[in-house]
Simulated scan of single mutants.
Amino acid sequence: MQQELKSDFTKQLIIDKAFSLFYENGFKSTSIDAIMRETSLSKGAFYHHYKSKKDIGLEVISLKVEKRVVEGMILPLMKKGNAYDIIVKVFINRLKEFSFYDKQHGCPMNNLINEIGNTEAVYQKALRNIIEQWKYALEQLIERGKYENSIKKEVSSKAVAIYLISAFEGIRGIRKLYDNDVVIEDFLSGLSSYLEQIRV
């Protein structure tokens, strides 16, 4: 039991350090040696848990990136309340709440999509799975809004869902180019205008 706990702790340490390095320096720029240095593990101890960088990448996507998106962007869409208000809260307030560190480095998922999303089918599948979960939850909320009469019935749930996700991810990438939030404020102004158009 003690050995199992130690093994779980070691794996978590590797994933946490790898996630931070991927986020700050990029997936391709981060070597296994750099991850090993951050964890202070021996080569033997390290390779006992992960045989390749691809294995680590997939674990980072499923254990860190997906968890962040589910907790920050998907579960809030499933709360009770006015559907339109929930969309506003999730997509507008969430951007305002990001720390300076998060604004500097963008979205971990979006960074990985742009860097490795077209290099390996396994990465594509893992990252697409997160987007599909997010899109489905948003489509369901928009449909609920139509039923509750807070969102216009003629609105295409699929179109609005993918637009909102794309816009949100896009501005997080663009924000990395600036040293202040003016570009986010301009984006939020435009997004607010768009959301008003789907509101009843």
Score class of each variant (00 low, 15 high):
80 K>E: 15
136 Y>G: 05
26 G>T: 04
96 K>D: 11
80 K>S: 13
56 I>V: 10
118 N>C: 09
49 H>E: 06
47 Y>I: 09
126 A>W: 00
143 E>Q: 14
69 V>E: 04
35 I>M: 01
47 Y>H: 12
143 E>D: 15
71 E>A: 04
138 L>Y: 07
136 Y>K: 15
34 A>V: 11
57 G>S: 12
98 F>E: 09
70 V>M: 05
122 V>N: 05
125 K>F: 01
47 Y>W: 11
127 L>H: 02
85 D>P: 04
155 V>Y: 08
142 I>A: 05
44 G>P: 00
130 I>H: 02
79 K>S: 10
125 K>D: 06
74 I>P: 02
51 K>T: 03
65 V>C: 12
78 M>L: 12
130 I>N: 01
137 A>S: 13
75 L>C: 01
116 I>R: 03
113 I>T: 12
63 L>N: 10
114 N>V: 10
108 P>L: 07
129 N>R: 15
133 Q>R: 09
70 V>K: 13
121 A>S: 13
130 I>M: 02
151 I>N: 03
35 I>P: 03
40 S>A: 06
61 I>W: 01
25 N>H: 12
58 L>V: 05
102 D>L: 03
139 E>G: 12
53 K>C: 02
90 V>P: 00
55 D>T: 07
29 S>V: 06
156 S>L: 08
63 L>D: 06
56 I>E: 00
81 G>W: 13
114 N>T: 10
119 T>L: 10
35 I>F: 01
48 H>A: 10
27 F>P: 02
126 A>H: 06
141 L>Q: 04
111 N>T: 09
50 Y>L: 03
129 N>S: 15
99 S>C: 13
151 I>R: 04
51 K>H: 07
140 Q>W: 06
146 K>S: 12
134 W>R: 00
107 C>M: 05
82 N>K: 13
